[in-house]
């Protein structure tokens, strides 16, 4: 059964202890363009929520607000018990160790090799690691995505799918509790996209992490989602499993699955 229609799901779920992200009454606008209007959602441990919405509907803004890259106009974003908009840079850095973010454009550093790209978050966060520990973590992350042989290559030498995998390995290297994916299959052919989705699922099971996935790819929604959230007109318009949403009679929801 559909849990939310027309932004009615603002009350916490019964298993409140399990919630790791709680967004409440979030507003964000850029000039006169109101992107998020009274948006609320919850994410629980080991849960995968896929956020669906039109281009420019504010999906990427939502996850950038969650990780503290974009400051909301008002509202609360509690991540692992801390309200993100109120945190100082130091506090934000500490909590970001526990959140992975896969960027739409992969955001691999062009001037660094694959090894240096993967080492970057390990060296920059305030974690004290010996060189052999860093090497082990890098190799483990590359093994997870099956690209050990690319360790000394530059991002420009890799294919689109390989770059996505390396970006995923960099996201995973700190073994985050939460992973935020910004359109992980955009620009990939259907076969590579399917491989990436399978990899995401496998990794999520291995690390028992929760995730918010921004996607337009129905295959991704079908394979990776526990729940689907529809972001329409800046609000959490509907939330439910894919099957529930597919059965919905709401014209705006139906439009996405036609």
């Amino acid at each position: 059964m559909l849990q939310t229609i027309n932004n009615t799901r603002n009350s916490p779920l019964p298993d409140e202890d399990n919630e790791i992200i709680a967004v409440e009454h979030l507003y964000k606008s850029f000039g006169s363009n109101k992107v998020l209007i009274d948006f609320s959602m919850l994410l629980h441990k080991e849960e995968n929520i896929v956020v669906l919405g039109k281009s420019g509907s504010g999906k990427s803004v939502l996850i950038k607000c969650i990780i503290g890259l974009v400051k909301p106009d008002s509202g609360t974003i509690r991540v692992l018990g801390q309200n993100i908009p109120e945190l100082s840079m130091e506090e934000l850095d500490k909590i970001r160790v526990r959140i992975g973010f896969l960027f739409q454009s992969n955001a691999l550093y062009d001037s660094m090799s694959v090894r240096q790209n993967l080492e970057f978050p390990l060296r920059r966060h305030s974690i004290r690691l010996r060189q052999d520990e860093v090497d082990t973590l890098v190799m483990n992350a590359l093994e997870d995505v099956g690209l050990q042989h690319t360790i000394d290559m530059m991002p420009a030498e890799l294919s689109g799918g390989m770059r996505k995998r390396i970006a995923l390995a960099r996201t995973l290297i700190l073994k985050p509790d939460i992973i935020l994916y910004d359109e992980p299959t955009t620009g990939l052919d259907p076969i590579t996209a399917k491989e990436i989705i399978e990899l995401m699922i496998r990794i999520q099971k291995k690390y028992r992490s929760a995730s918010i996935i921004i996607s337009h790819d129905m295959n991704c929604v079908k394979m990776a989602s526990d729940k689907v959230l529809m972001l329409i007109e800046g609000k959490c318009y509907a939330l439910g499993t894919m099957e529930e949403l597919q059965r919905s009679a709401d014209p705006k929801v139906k439009k996405f699955f036609e």
């Binding site: 990780i67 970001r96 160790v97 960027f103 955001a107 550093y109 062009d110 970057f120 920059r124 966060h125």
Partner: peptide
């Protein structure tokens, strides 16, 4: 050009989430 391309490919945002100013 370097910082411009880092900006448009979200590398600057990636640095920020990696604990770097």
């Amino acid at each position: 050009a370097e910082l411009g391309s880092m900006k448009v490919t979200e590398q600057i945002d990636a640095m920020e989430v990696s604990g770097t100013n």
